[in-house]
Design a protein around this nucleic acid. Structure first.
Lengths: 109, 109
DNA sequence: TATTTACATCGCAATATTACGATATTAAAA
DNA sequence: TTTTAATATCGTAATATTGCGATGTAAATA
């Protein structure tokens, strides 16, 4: 136990859930918002901005990179992180497909 | 360790993240989709549909109820679950506010 | 009333996540 | 070349999550 039974769900459900899971942490929301506001930033900016240890920030950045929503480019001794606009738009569509559907309810409820 | 440091984030960030976290599991996505398609359902329907143990489904329903996105009404010996349209719309707005913002990127990236 | 049905909750084992110090790596600066 | 700066990764402790069997509860049925 402790393992999600991914075999029993549709690929689309697993995919959507795993994206939402990555976004389901306040540090990663804060990181995304900061990157969006600043257009780009380096890891150290986030360490100072959020007050988490460097190792922790680095780990969160790794997870965001893993789903493709941000990308990092080496710039001297630091790494410049920014949103991958193409992926961001893909996600927008994916999320809109789920959240912006109309919902009807049985009379009984 | 192992605890998310919620104190360091803005309320809005914590709130958005906690909603996304609940949605970040394929069983809960599948449950929501099923409820939406059927307009309403009972716990046992989901046990058969998804093939998870009754205790497991009940637990996922509890988490969805906790964020208000579904509501359950007792109907004899079963409980009828359906989407809370009001809350669903609130969440739509909340998510759209985050996901549907325009994103610019520094030239360097 | 005894039984069945539909759920919720408890307790637990397996696993995953979060956070961080320590350490490695690589490039700039002294 | 030594030092400094910016990251990434490793290892680990604390905690959270997932899934399920067992059990409790309440309503319907026999």
């Amino acid at each position: 136990m402790g393992v999600t039974k991914t075999e029993i769900y549709k690929d689309e459900q697993n995919k959507l859930a795993s994206l939402l899971k990555v976004l389901g942490h306040p540090a990663r929301i804060a990181i995304l918002q900061y990157i969006i506001n600043q257009k780009a930033c380096i890891c150290n900016d986030l360490v100072e901005e959020l007050g988490l240890a460097q190792a922790t920030i680095s780990q969160h950045l790794k997870e965001l990179k893993a789903i493709g929503i941000i990308q990092g480019s080496i710039e001297g001794k630091s790494v410049c992180y920014c949103i991958d606009e193409k992926v961001w738009k893909q996600f927008q569509e994916e999320f809109n497909g789920f959240f912006n559907q109309d919902v009807n309810v049985k009379q009984c409820c």
